[in-house]
Design a protein around this nucleic acid. Structure first.
Lengths: 117, 117
DNA sequence: TGAATGGTTAAGCGATTACTTGACCATTCG
DNA sequence: CGAATGGTCAAGTAATCGCTTAACCATTCA
């Protein structure tokens, strides 16, 4: 289960594009077809398809085809995984700020010790 | 103030790389020099420098040089901006789930209306 | 002074991105 | 049937990415 690093790569990479974020913003308001997604975007349909493939590759979006129309919907858990990583970063530096309150006058100390040398 | 699209692009792009995320994970535990950052990473110093430049370009990290050592620290507000975008997406689909509870039996309706045609 | 340490610059390279155009397939409907 | 609609495939391209090596500068210290 690639719930780890490589998949976070893909999720953040997917979110690193304004077009794709716009597609996500659209999909959180409800499912949409590929051309619904494409309609407000200033690019060709194949381009939108490629963005959609990026979103699907990282699990952020899923889609099924019924007749000739493919309907896309968002997969909120993956969005949540990205959020979780960020939140997990916040916790350590919040703790650090606590300790900073305790020992504001402590010596600068070693900011980071070299492993063995 | 580029609190908007283009800067979110850069932040997510910065986070879309495992090396850069590792650097962030390190920095949330406290400031570090460039070579501190580089030490656990399987790549050359210049490569780390380039990653650092990406992190600085999006405001996620700041650094000052004292003597011959450059000390880097994280800039939590930018991390927060990325988190905020994700959270803002969660809200609409949570609301959507509420409405879904109300009208589970409603007609499929128009998933998205074409603008004018 | 001169060597070690810490960082920086520049050039180059293969891989990946974000598109494009053009052709094409499949479903639906007059 | 045959045209319109919705989507897909393939190839090409310019720009960006992640990394390397080699050379170099600046601070510190024996």
């Amino acid at each position: 289960m690639p719930n780890n690093g490589a998949s976070l790569d893909r999720v953040f990479q997917a979110l690193a594009d304004a077009t794709r974020r716009a597609m996500v913003e659209r999909l959180v308001r409800g499912p949409a077809s590929v051309s619904d997604l494409a309609h407000p975007l200033p690019m060709s349909l194949p381009a939108v398809m490629q963005h959609l493939q990026v979103l699907e590759a990282c699990g952020l979006v899923r889609s099924e085809k019924a007749g000739r129309v493919r309907t896309c919907h968002i997969e909120p858990e993956v969005l949540r995984a990205a959020e979780d990583w960020i939140v997990r970063q916040r916790t350590p530096w919040e703790k650090r700020l606590d300790r900073l309150g305790d020992q504001l006058t402590a010596p600068p100390a070693t900011p980071e010790q070299r492993s063995t040398s």
